[in-house]
């Protein structure tokens, strides 16, 4: 569903992405792990179009999206969440989701009818909020949510764009144990509907969710395969797993 081919990116002399290739097929959750500064977020940025790669391609389904802008990739079906929570703080929880829905349902160049009165958008937003467990937060300004709730709202916003593919940048970041477990359940549920590329530090989550695993060190994938294989890979252990898991 998503394929990255020979992606390269440098900032000056610093090569942050070296010849990265990977592919995620339908129904799969592919996790990318690696130490801090390995270039995980830079990779997500290149896939979603926030950063432009120096060379290489990003394919969504059959379509080459390498030269599309951020919003065009979103329209093409790439949904993403941010490592540092990124929502619309003055909007209500429901309007956050409705705004994302609106991008995919009809034109947004409508200037007169009040958007908040569109029952179809609000109902669908409510369905999505129920799915992530925020149904009782509908009318609260997003800025007033707790950190854990914001992580869920991030996911709800991404789902509202009816994505063909989900990029999740450390969804567990900053969550407590119970919250993490609830989120793992949610992601396990979503996996059936959306192929996922998951960047994550929480190894419990990674081993519970991922069908495939890539280890990124210094911008380079040094090991990739099923989680159980990678766990036994000496290179990967030395570089990362050895001191963490």
């Amino acid at each position: 569903m998503l394929a990255i081919e020979n992606l390269n990116k440098s900032f000056g002399a610093l090569r942050v992405t070296r010849d990265v290739s990977l592919s995620v097929s339908r129904g799969q959750c592919h996790a990318v792990i690696g130490p801090n500064g390995a270039g995980k977020t830079t990779l997500i940025h290149q896939i979603s179009g926030v950063l432009r790669q120096d060379s290489g391609r990003v394919l969504l389904g059959e379509r080459d999206v390498s030269h599309l802008s951020v919003w065009e990739r979103a329209q093409a079906g790439l949904g993403r969440t941010f490592q540092i929570t990124s929502v619309l703080p003055t909007f209500s929880v429901q309007e956050n989701v409705a705004t994302a829905l609106q991008a995919k349902t009809g034109s947004s160049l409508r200037f007169f009818a009040p958007a908040a009165d569109e029952a179809a958008l609000n109902d669908r937003a409510q369905t999505i909020l129920s799915r992530v467990g925020l149904a009782d937060r509908t009318d609260l300004p997003a800025g007033n949510l707790s950190h854990g709730e914001l992580r869920l709202l991030e996911i709800a916003i991404a789902l509202a764009g009816s994505p063909k593919f989900l990029l999740l940048d450390e969804p567990m970041a900053g969550l407590g144990k119970t919250e993490s477990m609830a989120l793992i359940d949610l992601l396990n549920d979503l996996r059936a509907d959306f192929p996922i590329l998951l960047v994550e530090h929480d190894m419990d989550a990674v081993f519970q969710l991922a069908d495939a695993l890539s280890v990124l060190v210094d911008g380079e994938i040094i090991a990739t395969g099923a989680p159980s294989e990678v766990r036994e890979n000496p290179q990967a252990r030395a570089a990362y797993l050895g001191d963490g898991a």
Binding site: V70, A74, P89, T90, F91, A116, I157
Partner: peptide
């Protein structure tokens, strides 16, 4: 609504597809 979303968080609005 899109305009206000862009005021709140332009990057988010862009990633939503606007």
């Amino acid at each position: 609504r899109v305009l206000r979303a862009a005021r709140d968080n332009p990057q988010r609005a862009e990633v939503m597809g606007y």
